[in-house]
Design a protein around this nucleic acid. Sequence first.
DNA 1: GCTGATTGCGAGAGCGCTCTCAAATAGTTC
DNA 2: GAACTATTTGAGAGCGCTCTCGCAATCAGC
Lengths: 344, 344
Amino acid sequence: MAANSTPTLEEVARLAGVSRATASRVFTASPKVSPKARRAVEKAAEKLQYVPNRAARTLVTGRTDSIGLVIPEPTASLFGDPFFPRLVRGISEVLSRRGLQLVLLMPQSREDEARLEGYLSAGHVDGVLMVSLHGNDPLPERVHRRGTPVVLGGKPNINSPVNYVDVDNVGGARTAVQHLVSLGRRTIATITGPLDMGAGVDRLQGYHDGLRDAGLQIDPTLEFAGDFGQESGARAMQELLDRRPDLDSVFCAADAMAAGALEVLRRRRRRVPQDVAVVGFDDSTIATSTVPPLSSVRQPIEEMGREMARLVLTGSDGPALGGKRVILATQLVVRASSVKGGGG
Amino acid sequence: MAANSTPTLEEVARLAGVSRATASRVFTASPKVSPKARRAVEKAAEKLQYVPNRAARTLVTGRTDSIGLVIPEPTASLFGDPFFPRLVRGISEVLSRRGLQLVLLMPQSREDEARLEGYLSAGHVDGVLMVSLHGNDPLPERVHRRGTPVVLGGKPNINSPVNYVDVDNVGGARTAVQHLVSLGRRTIATITGPLDMGAGVDRLQGYHDGLRDAGLQIDPTLEFAGDFGQESGARAMQELLDRRPDLDSVFCAADAMAAGALEVLRRRRRRVPQDVAVVGFDDSTIATSTVPPLSSVRQPIEEMGREMARLVLTGSDGPALGGKRVILATQLVVRASSVKGGGG
DNA sequence: GCTGATTGCGAGAGCGCTCTCAAATAGTTC
DNA sequence: GAACTATTTGAGAGCGCTCTCGCAATCAGC
């Protein structure tokens, strides 16, 4: 009934009739404690509802047993959809097994990012994962230099000593274009992502590669940049149709943009896929809810998460080995936006 | 050049030629330090790249200056869409101003939840926000009882002493039904959310209220439960059409379910809105990308986030006052799924 | 029943910081 | 310039925990 505040190890030890050291050993799963002493401590802890104070433990061990995942606000909004939970699922799978806690951090502003750097540097986490940063964000390098293991999700667009895991954006985009070519399309436009992001650049690269494979010309009038968002896809489609009424297909670097494009195509009375075939990227939930359903490039998001987690853990054991990178394969999913009656 | 590890306050103080206490005062923005001493400390800190060790500070102050936001995995997937970033934006807005760090926690499994309870109880955060838990999850109460301020987003479906903020689900659903009634619809079906969630129950309640307002009968054959997901909406719509081919409208407790319903209506050759009017809930991005665009009930998500943050902060100042609650108004957005040519 | 391992335990130092308290310094007033 | 008051400063305790060390207890071997 008494409102005593959180119990300490000291109190548990006293109640159990052992020393603080012995009680500590029970909670650190550390060597040899007699079954009798162990039971006594466990019982006392149970009775007092004892939970070890994390700050105290961290102070002495230097470990926090948690890993941070940094997702800048704009990213979170764009990938609204399953990207985010799927990534977390993959990461968690690996961390859970090791008893580590995942904490997500979403800076909303420059100001937040500054605080975040302090947070990460202050030893709040044992390692940091970051996804799809814009431009050449200095954060990963800064944190890396301070000795915290860092793993990026998505290739940084500057050369950087930081480890990263990425999906094969180039290959995926190339496959998408090859698919359109195999369908007999020859005037293939693209709505690119932001070109200050690795994914944006790489998907455009893959588009170019695909054209080259087929002996087609790269034509700037067939390219228009979006920002991965639906609105931008609609705007881009309008512009492209105005410029090139003869286009017979479009590769969109994101499903959301493809959804925007489909809307415009419908308004302009172009039949999909007969007049214009459309392929997206991400294979998000949007892909199955558009009319017609969207052919899209699927990414192994969970696997990316798992790989990121694995990488950050090897970093936090040994010294951070610089510049490790892992690239994961993508896969084309064909639906009715490119092949009449195609796919699910 | 020497690889000395993270500098301590001691070292900064020595370099600045002051005592540890004075140096500490500089970083805690605490009382009177002479400009001269302050400058010396700041210079030393800059030179050593000093960042205060958070664990040590927490150990003595008992504060962590961070607030946890718990989002169970299934929730994160369902609200794929902007819900999540918008909520975070609202919360961050308030926390940022106070210099607090928001950390997100996404338990993926029962096991994770157990660890999470430990994490929260171990004093890792000064307060906890939780959204849309299923059933009567014991976590909030447990954490609350341990003395950590807790605020729920969404009404818990059991009576609980825990503070919460919710949107007016009853009122929103009621308005949606009134809208359908005003359109002359009389056979109004509903696809409900999961009835072990507050939002599910309340929206059904609002549906009933709306019918009652209009003097219409509550008819169980017009109700079918979904899980807020698109698939479940499709299944529910099929079932409802089989049972009641005469229905002239349907209120869906989530946009994703409405999207599933629209798909089925299209397959069954029912024109929307002429034959069947559809209204969703959430006013998510899905609402504008369906064909036709979806009338939907908009929720003030950011405001909910802000309110949650404010509430948890008052809790962490004074003693946690039990059972404070805040309900925020919703708003109907009319589009073409209920009114021909209607809305955006 | 004595010696030498082996195992279980407690004493105590100390992680890096904040904060109280009293000493030192600077500033006023008559 | 003495007597005070206001302002800065430093010494030191201690937050709750882990972990090294050395001692006590147990056990095996002969």
